[in-house]
Design a protein around this nucleic acid. Sequence first.
RNA 1: GGCGCCAUCGUCUAGCCUGGUCUAGGACAUCGGCUUUUCAAGCCGGUAACACGGGUUCAAAUCCCGUUGGCGCUACCA
Length: 472
Amino acid sequence: MTITRFAPSPTGYLHIGGVRTALYNFLLARQNNGKFILRIEDTDKVRSKKEYEDDIIKSLDWLSLKWDEFYRQSDRRKIYSDYLSLLLKNKKAFYCSHTKNELETERQEAKLKGKPQVHWCNQKTNRSLRPANAVIRLAVEQGRVIKFKDLIRGEIAINTNTLGDFVIAKSLNEPLYNFAAVVDDSEMSVTDVIRGEEHISNTPKQILILEALNKKAPNFAHLPLILGQDKAKLSKRHGAASLNEFKKKGYLPEALINFLALLGWHPSDNREHFSLSELIKEFSLNRIQKSSAIFDLKKLESLNSYYLKKLNFDDFFKLAIQYLKEDNLIDFKWIQDAGIDLNKALLLEKERMKKLCDIKSVVDIYFKKNLDYKPELLAWKNQNFKEIKIILNEIKEVVGKLDFFDKISIQKTLEDISVKYQDRGKVFWPFRVAISGKEKSASPTEIADALGKKETLRRIDIALNILNDKEG
RNA sequence: GGCGCCAUCGUCUAGCCUGGUCUAGGACAUCGGCUUUUCAAGCCGGUAACACGGGUUCAAAUCCCGUUGGCGCUACCA
């Protein structure tokens, strides 16, 4: 059975690169009817925080990346300490009491000689009592070549001369990453370890630990990194790097999943759109890219607007309202009193949004009590104010008498008026600006439809006042 | 510095394994057009890439070597 795991350390909010790693692990497990494990690697007591663990859980949940088993390394200290004792007893590991200063001196010397900066210990002790401040190192054989077959990159070979007797724990109760991860992968029967490229250099160390433990190594697959526009590893200074920031901006989980899946993986055909279940079917490790990928926000936006368009109105409505309420952006009571149709307004803007936070433009156009713009904005091309006033008054009169105030009737009314002015822009433009207050907006007939007769007329009056102020 | 990984349009990539069908395909972005009362959307079209050098071969984006460049690791972090 295929067993994969996502093993983040809770030292920061879930990173977008982490999401992709989680996704690929999830996909491989699901397509093989296997198991996907979530394991919180919080061996670093200083940097790990509950807040970050919660964020990781919440984020994966939001993305529908469901795990079958959950573990937290801090709950498993006994297991690591037992294995550590065993290694010590078998002389596969030892206590090293060299001080940090001594080690640092060694390192400087090695650097000067152009040699790997590693420590080969000459004072190994294995007694059961830990010498003061000693750390536990693995006893490594010198000059051995460790080979492993990476599922994405092929064979990778590293000489143990570049490793040294590396540290596997600070003490019996304080295992380090490489040790705890390896013990867990083996205990949890993980078959495929899919993780970021930055772990390639950890892999030979983990293979050595596995050997010492007399355990079988899993398959390894190292994913290319996700980079920012400047080709440096994606981080906060590139704008957003953690998932919750994208969520906050109103990106949909479907878009994020689709985008991240294609950032490093590609199907054999030209398909661009994939749902989670389609990905489970199509995904394969051997179509993963070897080189790192630059994160392109424009492509994410494009994908997001695609999924936004696909969203049915009820779901969209819920999300939009939730978004508006969170930031306390609109006065629902006023909207109701004014007779504005919230549904129509949201539907109208849905088509032109790239992400949910664009909904603020809706607030601007539909739900503002006071509109403020320069009178010049009301003019179509070189239209003079006098003509605008005449037209606006005419619209006000005819539209005011409309029994059925819907977009078809409004459209017809405006077209009738347009006939004598030849250029339809002369009628449509001032009307559109009057009711939207904006240089750019959706079609005026539809906006008017959403606003309702009362609010439409009120806004025409506002426009007339703005024009009068100009004269006065 | 040491060790490792990588290299096709601006970006994500197809093609590379199994050399010829590649005057290198798609998507995003960009530019132009259509539509049009302004946007957006939609439709149509354009610009744009095999890092460099050497091999191997009748033939190389594809195989080999080297150079250059980018990135990662180099912790008693993960």
